[in-house]
């Protein structure tokens, strides 16, 4: 509930910045990859909400946990019921800011290295994170790309001993959000 309110406030704040160019998508992609001696596991979510305010560098995204799709149905069940407890914690959010906003020209086509700092909420736990990524500006659209690691224990995600060799302690998250100007 608290994370939802925070996200709504963040979005409302974005809305109050007059004349600012905003970019949004409702079909952003977030994937995760776990590699372990026993097996590799990956899941994809293609329904991610993301919003960027180019004038302030505010950047938010929100993910519905149940929208992650796995190759194996059993993994998807365990992910939702046992690890992420998606009935209790249905969303993950990121709310942050581009810290090197001056290095990114959203009006000019190109690839720009960026650093984003903010609060990442997973499984009801919020942590401060700073990650490097890239913004690709092309013909008025902005694509945000990032790859970073998350330690499951940091977000109180417990893996049962029986499958501890099947799931990595640190998983890799890939973000790919292609945002269009908000009209």
């Amino acid at each position: 509930m608290k994370t939802t309110i925070t996200f709504v406030i963040a979005v409302m704040m974005l809305g109050n910045v007059a004349f600012a160019q905003k970019y949004v998508t409702k079909t952003g992609k977030v994937s995760f990859f776990s590699t372990s001696p026993m097996e590799n596991i990956e899941a994809h979510n293609k329904q991610v909400n993301a919003a960027l305010d180019a004038s302030t560098g505010d950047f938010v995204f929100k993910i519905l946990i149940k929208s992650f799709e796995f190759e194996k149905a059993l993994m998807q069940e365990h992910f939702n019921e046992n690890y992420m407890e998606s009935d209790k914690f249905p969303n993950s959010t990121f709310q942050g800011k581009i810290t090197n906003l001056g290095s990114v020209d959203f009006t000019k086509n190109g690839e720009y290295d960026a650093e984003v700092s903010g609060k990442l909420t997973i499984h009801g736990i919020t942590k401060d994170v700073t990650e490097k990524g890239k913004f690709v500006v092309k013909d008025g659209n902005v694509q945000g790309l990032a790859k970073f690691s998350v330690r499951l224990a940091d977000y109180d995600i417990k893996i049962p001993k029986a499958v501890v060799n099947n799931i990595a302690e640190v998983i890799e998250i890939t973000v790919d959000v292609n945002m269009n100007p908000l009209k």
Partner: peptide
Amino acid sequence: CTGFNDTDIIFE
């Protein structure tokens, strides 16, 4: 139905 993301109800 996978839930509500503050703007939309999502169906897969």
